[in-house]
Design a protein around this nucleic acid. Sequence first.
DNA 1: TTGGGATTGTCCGGGAACGGACAGATAGGC
DNA 2: GCCTATCTGTCCGTTCCCGGACAATCCCAA
Lengths: 240, 240
Amino acid sequence: MAALALGHEARVMVHEAAWVARCVGRGEWAPLSNGDLEDLAARLSTRIYEAGEQLFAQGQEPDGVYIVREGRVELVWRGSMRRRLVVQILHPGDVEGDICTILAIAPPYSARALDRVEALVISPADLEALLTRPQVSRRWLSSVAARLVHSQRRILQLQDHEVRGKVASLLLDEERGGVVELPQESLAALLSVRRQAVNGALREFERAGLVRTSYRLVRIEDRAGLESVAGRRASREHAA
Amino acid sequence: MAALALGHEARVMVHEAAWVARCVGRGEWAPLSNGDLEDLAARLSTRIYEAGEQLFAQGQEPDGVYIVREGRVELVWRGSMRRRLVVQILHPGDVEGDICTILAIAPPYSARALDRVEALVISPADLEALLTRPQVSRRWLSSVAARLVHSQRRILQLQDHEVRGKVASLLLDEERGGVVELPQESLAALLSVRRQAVNGALREFERAGLVRTSYRLVRIEDRAGLESVAGRRASREHAA
DNA sequence: TTGGGATTGTCCGGGAACGGACAGATAGGC
DNA sequence: GCCTATCTGTCCGTTCCCGGACAATCCCAA
């Protein structure tokens, strides 16, 4: 009966592992074997964090890989002065902490749960063991490569000199189900601009019918319109 | 005799391959076998580009991996309007093109030789073949991870609101042997600011004794001083 | 050696965001 | 149901950079 219970538990974790595998790169290039999947499953553990709780701190030893299953996690960098920049917001399916573990460096940012977060965790030693499996390391490679592309896209996005463009671009990136559920202060921290500037852009969008705003929430009404503002707007319109 | 000549050629390429291996991640985590090295050597070819020549174009099919052996390569992104941003400048030892090849996506930027460039090239098919080798893919993973960290550092650098800080930070990043050999226009394109702003910062640095400038060249005189400007200056000094 | 293209140093007006401040609105805790 | 912390909308003066322009300087090549 213990064996049966364990079997059930193991089956659940293999299911989790298959989900993790989908998060770590696409399967086309390196299908995982059953052995890979079972090994992955055996090294996964689940952790729960309450909203506001910290997953790991800037400058501390890397403590493994986090795969977000539910909720959102905020990656925050703090400079020596007041400078505070939200590097990224992790959504379900996002992987974090592997880079620092692989390179054995301290993460340059802290991670804080925005909501109640459910995460799957792999310890540094377990990650190292998993990466000796050819298919796993090949697949993990494509995952990190995809993140590098995303990081470069973000650089381009942040180089827009007009706050409106940055905000539009950010909304399109952070939106889930047509909604961005974040206070304007957080949006400003993601773009490293002042809150007032974000507010101004948002109100401008609202008057143009691109979005609807309410408390800690922005609803996207006209995606195409936002995209044209984010890229380079076709029609120039100046409201007095 | 042909065999002997081939043996010599092969030995040279294995030597090249060992150098490439040092460029692609550190050896501590995944030492390559002789077989790995020989395979890598067999798939390397050398190409020469004259200054100004284009290696690959934005939006075109990825055509393999480039490892810069000599000279510098400029990665340029072009927006729909006049926007032109230098994403990165490749120096000897830098690896480029692997991410796009791995993900089978078109590169979002063009690559142009700044000087006479000597590069080692691996075709997409050869890269794919190499990555089936466990040690190679494990090692390549650490290389891409390192680049992701660098990309994130660059995001932080670009978020500085003062041009002086960005310029100081850039000089420290691009400097080789205490010298940055780039026209101010290129520095501006790397930071996506106006040339005049870079010029102003540079002249300010020069008056403070941090650098010496001449035609297409900036020489770093006081590294610690620049670092304090790049991070957050300890002593605030305003020249009239 | 001499021209011409590229690069640098400098000026100025206009505009956008910063930086600080404050009242009104909203949601969650007691 | 009230009360408080948080979030939003809005004001202002100041600072910095953009955007355009122009002369002086520097290489390189003919």
